[in-house]
Amino acid sequence: MAGPSSTSSDVSPAVEQAGAPISEAEAIERLRQNEDPSQQYYGAWWLGRMRSQHPEAVPLLRLALRQRRPRDLGAGVEENAVARNAARALGKLAPLALEAVNDLLEVLEDPDDGLREAAARALGELRAEEAVEPICRRLASGPQQAGAQRPGTPRLMEPCEALLEALGDIGMASEPVLAVVEPFVDHERPLIRSAAARALLQLSGEERWGTVLVELLEHPQLQVRRAALMDLGAAGWRPALEPICRTLAENSLKLMALRGLVEQGSGEPGEPALLACMDELL
């Protein structure tokens, strides 16, 4: 938790301005101008965060999405950062953003895997069924190739976590989709295993995938326990209630997971039991 005293002299403009509240009109203007990418970056973030319904929001975000080029990490807020934030924002602007699905599908083929990741998440949030085929194509080579580590970086060849989660969110439970996802339950990285089990649980509702996630709640790494909490919440897997309450993690994350159980799940334990556990965690 950073205190107010942590401001240092080298904060980027985007971070600095994030502190000052701005209006929707101001966010639109910041995104529209093209002199200062850091202003566009912030404008795009703001429109998504506030779930703007402004008629110009989606058209401007689509324009920003086209503003990409090979990554140039030396150039302050690199231009792809604007496109990345535009993709993230579009994911939060359903149903207006449905007209941007084709643009996002294009970004899913970009050489920049950070952009592919943002596009996949947005397509998942928009429940874009058109994305299932291209996402499956990216994952089809399996954990050994799509899921292999990119030499010289900690990243994988494909943004597997985002691609798997998008398939689960979109919810098309066909045999070929399940066959693409299933091998990733054995990926060497626990976060990928968690994402795959989450997608399979959402798609099939089979208990065995819920069990994989519940076991990950006891993983020695906090980061993995947090991911499993979020994944159980996204899948609304109510049998995980007791294990979630016992997990060694922040109450904030357990509350988010339990909210998912209430809102995405059904069956036993029922809502009174879920809410009683949430009350205890406040």
Binding site: R51, R259, V262, E263, E271, L275
Partner: peptide, 14 residues
């Protein structure tokens, strides 16, 4: 209301 998720509504109704 917009932005008020079902879990909050449910808890308040309870």
């Amino acid at each position: 209301a917009a932005g008020n998720p079902p879990v909050v509504q449910l808890r308040a109704r309870l």
